[in-house]
Design a protein around this nucleic acid. Structure first.
Lengths: 126, 126
DNA sequence: TTGCACTAGATGCAGATGCATGGAATGTTC
DNA sequence: GAACATTCCATGCATCTGCATCTAGTGCAA
């Protein structure tokens, strides 16, 4: 793989990322008042096997700094989509858990999310 | 391509984008005081066939809003890496052109950029 | 128990981004 | 040429992000 190949691959990735992310952000925001990052967190919470996750567990899944994630969870909590609760086993930790409203909004938004992705990956499947 | 496939592909893309971008940003900032977006603009300016580009031409290449690009160019100008000048053919437009300092810094930073990309794409070439 | 290093998460702050808007120049229509 | 719509870039503003730091809780060692 030459230098140029790598650069081209990177630009291709940048392009796909930017257009998809931007579209997701616009659609989710407009219809459900959700940012793309926020949906990403809801997605992990909803699909998970557990019904509550530690903040640091979520941090390992989404690509945000610890501070950004903390505030994002704060926003979700303000919107009533998740609740924070103290972690029993380690009282420094915070458990994050979807509320019913959160589960509902997620279920409503999920088709939009998937359909944007499908459209975005349709023209040049990875 | 199933729904799950698409989601997985998207997450793979997110992951690669985040780690690569983050690494680029850190390395370029630390060594050359450049943000990843800023390098991206310098890259387009330096490799281009023309020696000056309209702001809107750059806008079509990098994935930034028009306002973000305008400010980014402002930062580059403050650092003395580019100059803005009125466009002759259309006096609404602005031509952006690398300075010698800009060309030098770009040449210095380019190997770092390429090497980060190479490392990032080495483990799973697209 | 006390002391100290370490970890989890929250927050002050500065910087970057996007949206909406503004001013200036251009093009269009009559 | 006058009036109006449109395009180009800059900027006010709110929001999101990361870095550095802070507080609270944990674990270990003497």
């Amino acid at each position: 793989m030459t230098d140029t190949d790598v650069v081209n691959a990177w630009r291709e990735l940048l392009s796909r990322h930017a257009s998809t992310w931007c579209e997701l952000d616009r659609e989710l925001n407009e219809r459900y008042g959700l940012g793309a990052s926020e949906f990403e967190v809801l997605d992990r919470l909803a699909e998970g096997v557990k019904d509550a996750y530690r903040v640091q567990e979520l941090g390992a899944m989404v690509f945000l700094s610890q501070s950004a994630l903390s505030r994002l969870i704060g926003r979700l909590e303000t919107k009533g989509l998740v609740v924070r609760s103290m972690c029993d086993s380690d009282r420094r930790g915070i458990s994050v858990c979807l509320t019913d409203a959160g589960r509902e909004l997620y279920a409503a938004a999920k088709p939009t999310h998937r359909s944007v992705l499908a459209a975005s990956f349709a023209d040049a499947p990875a």
